[in-house]
Simulated scan of single mutants.
Amino acid sequence: MIHFRLSTKDDLPRIMDIWRRAVDATHDFLAPDDRDAIQAELVTFFPQISLLLAVHDNDTPLGFMFLHDGHMEALFIDPDQHGKGIGKALIQRAVAEHPALTTDVNEQNHKALGFYEHQGFERTGRSTHDGQGRPYPLIHLRYKAAV
């Protein structure tokens, strides 16, 4: 069964493991230097914020999400847990608090884009570069509230 809790500093090694493994499984378009630079930024950033963790009964983190002002900045699931409803559960929790939830997804990450659209997100725009100015186009998405 999946439970949710906020991250602590003790979770950082597992969070970074999930991030690295998820990126390796889904972001093959990233240049190695960019992947390393992003990882270095996150090692500094993650301890400063609270992430929502999806954890197993034994409290092992299976995935995480970072929300900021109604925008989902990050959603990463352990690749061994893909397809088990963890990402969907985290999104449902976020939408319950933020019905107009927004997020961005790398244009080259076709599986993630399909996942978000299947969860009820619609495209609202596109940027040619990511938030740090790297040449990785982003698709901007917003959750479609039920009418």
Rank of each mutant, 00 (worst) to 15 (best):
I2M: 13
I2Q: 09
H3I: 00
H3S: 14
H3N: 14
S7T: 07
K9D: 13
K9F: 03
D10L: 13
L12N: 00
R14P: 04
M16W: 13
D17Y: 10
I18M: 04
I18V: 11
I18P: 00
W19T: 01
R20G: 07
R20N: 09
A22P: 03
A22Y: 04
V23T: 13
D28C: 11
L30W: 08
P32R: 11
D33A: 15
D33P: 01
D34W: 05
R35K: 15
D36I: 11
I38G: 02
T44A: 14
F45I: 04
F46G: 05
F46R: 04
Q48C: 08
Q48H: 13
I49M: 10
I49S: 03
S50A: 14
S50G: 14
L52V: 15
L52D: 02
L53P: 03
L53E: 04
A54M: 05
V55C: 11
V55W: 00
H56C: 07
H56Q: 12
D57Y: 10
T60I: 12
T60D: 04
P61H: 01
P61K: 04
L62Y: 02
L62S: 05
L62W: 02
F64P: 03
M65S: 08
F66Y: 13
L67S: 05
H68F: 09
H68N: 12
H71Y: 00
A74I: 05
L75R: 02
F76L: 10
F76M: 10
F76Y: 14
I77Y: 00
I77C: 07
D80F: 04
D80M: 07
D80G: 10
D80S: 15
Q81M: 14
H82N: 06
G83D: 05
G83L: 01
G85S: 07
G85K: 06
K88G: 11
K88C: 12
K88M: 13
I91A: 06
Q92I: 10
A96F: 13
A96Y: 13
A96M: 13
E97T: 09
P99H: 05
A100E: 14
A100N: 15
L101E: 02
T103G: 10
D104L: 02
N106E: 09
Q108F: 06
Q108M: 05
N109K: 03
N109G: 03
K111L: 10
A112W: 08
G114L: 01
F115C: 07
Y116Q: 00
Y116K: 01
E117K: 12
E117D: 03
E117L: 15
E117R: 12
H118G: 01
G120K: 03
R123C: 11
T124D: 07
T124L: 10
R126N: 08
S127D: 14
S127G: 07
T128E: 12
T128A: 15
H129M: 05
H129A: 09
D130I: 08
D130F: 00
D130Q: 11
G131E: 09
G133F: 07
R134S: 06
Y136N: 00
Y136K: 02
P137V: 00
L138N: 06
L138T: 01
L138H: 00
R142C: 08
Y143E: 01
K144C: 08
K144L: 15
K144R: 15
K144T: 14
A145C: 12
A146W: 13
A146P: 10
V147W: 08
V147C: 11
